[in-house]
Design a protein around this nucleic acid. Structure first.
Lengths: 168, 168
DNA sequence: CTTGGAATGTCAACAAAGCTGACGTATTGT
DNA sequence: ACAATACGTCAGCTTTGTTGACATTCCAAG
């Protein structure tokens, strides 16, 4: 493993060793499993998948969002999103209404049923997140968020920042 | 971060509000995309996928590991892993040798070619992780790891801890 | 020693969810 | 009038997960 910074590194750079970075990578991998585990269990019972969860989550966050906007947030193709969206609309979890200003657009909202599922899913996911936050403490949480934000692609971070500001 | 000066709840619990938890959830979602983006690009060129990356990573970490052991680390079915493993073996990236003590087992090692790909992938992933770590600083990194560890399932954390101790 | 069950790994077939490409329709804006 | 945009859909392919069936190997009870 050829690594540039070998000899006289300051103590403060210890966290940049390949070993430390590898641990971070593995932590990210294993933690993401836990992160999705609880919603996945709920979704499996209702024969939905993670893709449905993501759509529901962001429609809840941005009620009235258009298909195109959702597309760029989720980073998938419209064909892929459409399949998921179609089943959610058929099952009555999502309402799609023609735009008033621009009739080409479809505005997406959660129905009562959709909102109920959203709550069930995010409650489960928040419970785990809350437990992790509580165990780690406020300082750790601040660091957690900082590192995650620094890890995003620039374009992705743009979406994240936009969502972030929406409710504060 | 212009937040948190208003609510009437104890300052120390501010990080446990639903709003904060939701931000953490979205940060996790968006950051994971960045986390896998660079390896994904490399893998796509060679017509491999994320599953191949994971197998290669953990075979590199635990040379001589058995299929069963790899299975429990990755958390997939043996049939799913087998498909990935078969192409890696056919392509000469992984060597599978029959166990000496127990001939039912197969011991897995990376070949030279396999090790080369592993280096390419983990270099790319480490580069991004390093940039994120550097931007966030050592204290944030410690918090990042703490929260991730607290987020894991118990069984998963067991695997993580085992890997962690392996090289320190 | 034999034999039946458990463990390990392989093959086959199917499902979820991503992708590309092509095309149709309605609407907008130049 | 016409090009561009937003959306939906069909067809087909890939990756990666799943279950079910099966071969091989080991071990322990009879």
């Amino acid at each position: 493993m050829p690594e540039g910074s070998s000899p006289p590194m300051g103590q403060s750079l210890l966290f940049l060793t390949d070993e430390q970075l590898r641990k971070g990578i593995e932590a990210m991998f294993f933690a993401y499993r836990g992160f999705t585990a609880d919603p996945d269990r709920i979704l499996a019972q209702k024969s939905y998948g993670r893709a449905h969860h993501r759509a529901i989550h962001f429609i809840h966050r941005s009620p009235g969002t258009t298909v195109n906007n959702l597309l760029s947030i989720l980073g998938v193709t419209k064909q892929s999103l459409n399949r998921v969206l179609r089943t959610l609309i058929e099952d009555g979890l999502v309402a799609s209404t023609v735009g008033t200003r621009d009739k080409r657009e479809r505005h997406l909202h959660l129905t009562e049923t959709g909102a109920a599922l959203e709550r069930e899913l995010s409650d489960a996911q928040r419970d785990r997140m809350r437990a992790a936050y509580r165990a780690a403490g406020p300082a750790a949480v601040a660091g957690f968020r900082q590192v995650l934000e620094a890890m995003m692609d620039d374009e992705t971070r743009h979406h994240y920042e936009a969502m972030k500001e929406k409710t504060e």
